[in-house]
Amino acid sequence: MSQAIKPYLAALIVMGVLDALWLGLVAKDFYREQIGAQMAEQIRWAPALVFYLAYPAALVALALFPAGQPVATQVARAALVGLVAYGVYDLTNAATLRQWPLKLALADTAWGTFASTAAGAAAAWVAQRFS
């Protein structure tokens, strides 16, 4: 278990920083344009905290373990986790909500894949460097 703490922290930090930049600065207006009326006026911190603590743990568990895989394999698995996790979320929303444009689903899935890949790469690097 202690073998996963440092990679988890790396994934947590990278995912948190990237998502804060993406949602807070880069794509803030994009989301508002696409689903403005559906957005909460204030961030609901409890569900956000659960996601940002749990997702990097799942990412590390699914991408890095069992240990001993090549880093390229671990990073590719992190990308796959991101594609599946964000794809399921966005495509389910596109299928069930009145206003979840395909443009948003594709952009958000691409973002989640990128952020998960970066977080997984950081975790893999830390695991390799500090194991």
Rank of each mutant, 00 (worst) to 15 (best):
Ala10Val: 08
Ala10Ile: 07
Ala11Glu: 04
Leu12Gln: 03
Val14Phe: 00
Val14Trp: 02
Val14Asp: 01
Val14Ala: 01
Met15Lys: 14
Met15Cys: 11
Val17Tyr: 11
Val17Ala: 08
Val17Met: 09
Leu18Ser: 05
Leu18Arg: 00
Ala20Tyr: 08
Ala20Lys: 02
Leu21Ile: 14
Trp22Cys: 03
Leu23Asn: 12
Leu23Gly: 15
Gly24His: 10
Gly24Asp: 10
Val26Cys: 10
Ala27Thr: 09
Lys28Cys: 11
Asp29Val: 11
Asp29Pro: 14
Phe30Pro: 10
Phe30Glu: 05
Phe30Cys: 00
Tyr31Gln: 08
Tyr31Leu: 07
Arg32Tyr: 11
Arg32Pro: 11
Arg32His: 15
Glu33Ser: 03
Gln34Met: 15
Gln34Phe: 06
Gln34Asp: 07
Ile35Arg: 03
Ile35Met: 11
Ile35Gln: 10
Gly36Thr: 04
Ala37Val: 06
Gln38Lys: 15
Gln38Tyr: 13
Glu41Gln: 13
Glu41Arg: 02
Glu41Tyr: 04
Gln42Ser: 09
Gln42Phe: 06
Gln42Lys: 08
Gln42Met: 07
Ile43His: 01
Ile43Thr: 10
Ile43Pro: 04
Arg44Trp: 08
Arg44Asp: 15
Ala46Tyr: 05
Pro47Phe: 05
Pro47His: 03
Pro47Lys: 02
Ala48Gly: 11
Ala48Cys: 06
Ala48His: 05
Leu49Arg: 03
Leu49Val: 10
Tyr52Ala: 00
Tyr52Trp: 03
Tyr52His: 02
Leu53His: 04
